[in-house]
Design a protein around this nucleic acid. Structure first.
Lengths: 170, 170
DNA sequence: CGCCGGGGTTCACCCAGGCGAAACAACCGG
DNA sequence: CCGGTTGTTTCGCCTGGGTGAACCCCGGCG
């Protein structure tokens, strides 16, 4: 998960997009432009033209912060709010139940059947419903640095975006 | 808790001392010196001489982060006056009661029902009354850097705005 | 080697309901 | 009489949830 450099304010749209996908960003503020207001923990800015050393220092800092995020446990409260550190995302009912199941067995594979039962306690709708909700959930969780990985024909598991293949057992 | 400006690396000892006491710091990096490696999330640095605007932006950013970290929350007194730092707003009766409920469970979701009961202890008016008051409350709280976030189908939640305009400079 | 099929992903589209916002009417206190 | 407060209606957007279909990746098989 590398830090992405973005020209500011020229590439504002790109910044929002990257934020959605949970990538750390360094905004290169063009002279004359007002500095941005930080939208999350993994964003920083620097005035250009900038010293190579300074730029590098800020990039490193962002990288470290992105990595630190992985040591926090995601928490889902009763009101469908998923929190990671100070960041949080509201989850709609179905996705909240799915997330509960995933967080519950965090880092381990949860079968499609379990998920389906978790999401729809009294009968699942079409077979595709689960896939679609997983997709939506993925997008919602991305900004928090969480990813839902597929284990083909087995199920899904929840982990950190930047996380390597390291097994993290309880 | 105001941000402390420190010359770097001249005042390194002072920086460590402030870090111990949990104060937010902005290091003024003298030209030629290497940028510091951040020791925590309430420290930032800027190369001097620096633009006034840039410096201010970083200070504000640190203030916001420090506030979050300390779990500082707004205070509502008996007379319907909401205070945050040195700024304040008078709140009319209904909105004061709603705010009380939100402040009470600060940072957590408050259901529409709870809010409705808080605002109108003996019987709620029409269905939309709450929506409208939340809207008005939002406008009143915005200048203080407070925002009421919607958690769809669950309720509302009070928190600090990402880009608050609250100035608490010396 | 190329075709095929199953499992997954993604997209477009639909409907329903929650919520936001503006505009208006009644009201209350000075 | 006037400005601020409160309640209501109405309109419309956006989101949540669901379905079907196209597509893609990969392993198996002729």
């Amino acid at each position: 998960m590398d830090v992405v450099l973005i020209r500011w304010p020229a590439e504002e749209a790109r910044r929002d997009h990257l934020r959605q996908s949970g990538a750390p960003r360094l905004l290169l503020v063009e002279s004359g432009a007002a500095p941005p207001v930080a939208v999350d923990e993994i964003e920083d800015w620097i005035r250009v033209p900038a010293d190579e050393v300074d730029l590098h220092a800020r990039v490193e800092n962002l990288n470290r912060r992105a990595r630190e995020r992985e040591h926090v446990q995601p928490e889902l409260d009763e009101d469908g709010v998923l929190r990671v550190g100070s960041a949080w995302v509201p989850l709609p009912p179905v996705e909240a139940r799915l997330t509960a199941a995933l967080v519950d067995r965090y880092g381990a594979v949860v079968s499609r059947e379990s998920l389906s039962r978790a999401g729809w306690p009294d009968g699942a709708p079409g077979r595709n419903a689960l896939d679609v909700h997983v997709l939506r959930l993925r997008r919602r969780l991305a900004p928090l640095g969480l990813a839902i990985r597929t284990v083909r024909s087995r199920g899904y598991l929840l982990e950190w975006t930047a996380g390597s293949a390291v097994l993290r057992d309880a």
